[in-house]
Design a protein around this nucleic acid. Structure first.
Lengths: 173, 173
DNA sequence: TCGTATTAGTTGTCTCAACAAGTAATCGCG
DNA sequence: CGCGATTACTTGTTGAGACAACTAATACGA
């Protein structure tokens, strides 16, 4: 019955409580702003951004699901809704006709281009602007160490560029 | 149209992507372990722990909702399910008969006592054991700075002791 | 080349959370 | 008092995600 549990020290408990509070609050804060200003959940925003950054603005459903930490059924439902709104298009993959490719449309690019500034502003206001440059570096290292446990094959962090002028640049291509 | 957006630098973007990946993955990891080993969601576990740590193991629904970042309707549904399972009990508050008090039962205390070691083990395996003592201290400071933005009145971090021998101690009381 | 296993996605079912509306008790002010 | 406003909570409805079952296409071994 393993009564030899290594309980948390005061320091560990305090840090953990704060981390879990962030994990609880952050998704809601991001969803709230994006839903209010662009009618998109954070998940939909990330999915659209991933497509915008992909070569030919196109990606396989499986690949997109992996990058966004979604199950394939979940992505399938979300993709149907985004397609109904005209933000993406789906078509069978020529090379492997089992597969489906998703492409972001012009309307989708328009939407994320409009949404990006407000989202970046929220990211700054809720997190980044609260940290010193030193803390930003520390956060990078700490989060890297944690993700080595939570996401060993780096599915979620493989995305090249989620911000800067990503969407606008994709636009020009 | 505010074209003067301060886009994220490379360092900011990298740290942000990692943080958001953690916020995405951590709740699922905690839910998975607790559901598998104790039949509880992480939310239910935190709610029960909050009650176990409260004076007389009792708390007002509104207070509990605030501490767990739940809306009152959500907590109401969850409390009904927990009550049906015999893990908590609800009764009208004597002082203010609009209010409802929730108390954790003996069965509830038993369950979280059994669940706590496995949960702590998961917390260690997924986060804490990946960090050096220095990084733990840095995480504490960083998370504090972020929560000053996300949770200004410290609703989520007000809980005294979520770990160590909290539940067992409450038991003796 | 036939048949089975595997891969890729979609669809259906159930559970849960968000939102809105409803109920009941208390407060506040004339 | 007494009546509207507020507070505390519950209930009903809608929508989204998890899981399992299903379809379709490909890979591969005999």
């Amino acid at each position: 019955m393993s009564t030899d549990t290594r309980w948390l020290s005061t320091e560990e408990s305090a840090a953990w409580v704060r981390l879990i509070a962030i994990a609880e609050l952050l998704p809601g804060a991001l969803d709230a702003q994006l839903l209010r200003d662009a009618g998109l959940t954070h998940f939909e925003y990330v999915a659209l951004m991933s497509l915008a950054d992909a070569p030919s603005r196109t990606m396989r459903m499986t690949e997109l699901a992996s990058r966004t930490n979604a199950t394939l059924p979940r992505l399938s439902h979300v993709a149907r809704r985004l397609e109904e709104r005209g933000l993406i298009r789906r078509f069978p993959c020529p090379e492997d006709r089992r597969a489906t490719n998703a492409t972001i449309t012009e309307a989708g690019l328009d939407l994320i281009s409009e949404a990006a500034p407000g989202h970046v502003e929220t990211v700054r206001a809720s997190v980044l602007d609260a940290l010193t440059p030193t803390q930003l570096e520390q956060l990078y290292e700490i989060a890297g160490a944690v993700l080595a446990r939570l996401d060993p094959d780096e599915r979620l962090t493989a995305t090249s560029c989620q911000f800067s002028e990503g969407p606008a640049a994709a636009r020009a291509g």
